[in-house]
């Protein structure tokens, strides 16, 4: 990312707020420690200098648009992941596209605030440039489209018992904090099944079964809509490799009903599990 990107974004945010094009502008600001960035919603042209856009902006900000629904047009910095998240929210009818003003930027990946290594989610990124935007700041970047199914390949090659052990260990570490849900742009239901007071829906106790139930059902609920932003994995306080469940489903859908690259793409068509073809592959006869 270019050094003057922060300044360019500040200028655009100021113009957009001053002209009344947007009522607020969502970006990042520096947080307490060095290299820490936190989402910020700017409401006044005087505050735009708080904005920072650099390689430490590790959080996805698109979901903050949901908090501003009904408050006029929302400005936002949009990298590939933000743009796909907005498309996701539009497809799920949680915002309309006209209510969001996207200032697109090409992104070359973010760095870990501890140690400065590239983030795993960015190393797997398929769309560094925004898939939709209202204006672009700076140049688009090249799209390396790295192979993202290495982990899936590895787990698929294991014996069932090894896989079971792997996920038993993984789910046993789940703290059921729901951070994965809270950051996920596809998790945009007003009320989550996990919060429903319905017998058997989700146990209220902690344990391997409960966390496996949560982990698998959340993955399945978002599987055919996942934009592969990797936020669930980044936000997980236990550092669990949650994206392996998502990549698995994306690839299965691609192989079974494809071609499919994941959700949140403008030309992706209806969500795969909300549609069907009468000549779908048959394996249950």
């Amino acid at each position: 990312m270019t050094a003057n990107l922060t300044q360019q974004i500040r200028d655009r945010a100021r113009d957009l707020l001053q002209s009344g094009t947007v009522s607020c502008f969502i970006a990042w600001e520096p947080a307490r420690f060095e290299h820490w960035r936190t989402p910020v919603t700017i409401e006044s042209p005087d505050e735009v200098d708080r904005i920072v856009v650099d390689e430490w902006c590790d959080q996805l900000i698109a979901k903050y648009a949901l908090q501003r629904r009904g408050d006029g047009r929302i400005g936002m910095v949009a990298r590939g992941c933000e743009s796909r998240a907005v498309e996701r929210l539009v497809a799920d009818r949680q915002v309309s596209r006209q209510d969001v003003y996207l200032v697109g930027v090409g992104c070359t990946g973010m760095l870990d605030r501890d140690g400065g290594a590239p983030l795993k989610k960015c190393e797997e990124c398929q769309r560094r440039n925004p898939v939709t935007y209202d204006e672009m700041v700076g140049e688009t970047v090249e799209e390396p489209r790295p192979y993202r199914f290495g982990e899936v390949d590895r787990i698929e090659s294991m014996e069932p018992e090894q896989r079971r052990a792997f996920f038993d260990r993984m789910f046993s570490q789940c703290a059921m904090c729901f951070a994965c849900r809270n950051v996920c742009p596809a998790c945009n239901c007003r009320s989550c099944f996990a919060d429903a007071e319905r017998v058997g829906w989700l146990e209220k106790d902690f344990g391997l079964d409960a966390s496996r139930y949560w982990g698998l059902m959340r993955a399945f609920h978002t599987g055919d809509r996942c934009i592969e932003c990797g936020e669930c994995e980044r936000a997980c306080p236990m550092g669990l490799p949650l994206m392996t469940l998502m990549h698995k489903q994306v690839r299965d859908i691609d192989r079974l009903f494809g071609p499919y690259e994941g959700g949140g793409l403008s030309d992706a068509g209806p969500d795969p599990l909300r549609s069907y073809r009468t000549d779908d592959v048959e394996e249950f006869m």
């Binding site: 069932p160 079971r164 052990a165 996920f167 698998l216 399945f220 698995k248 795969p272 779908d280 394996e283």
Partner: peptide, 17 residues
Amino acid sequence: KRRMMVFKRLLEYSGLR
């Protein structure tokens, strides 16, 4: 069919025999 095809693969991926 679509749901169960994806879900079955997910279950077996996560260790169901």
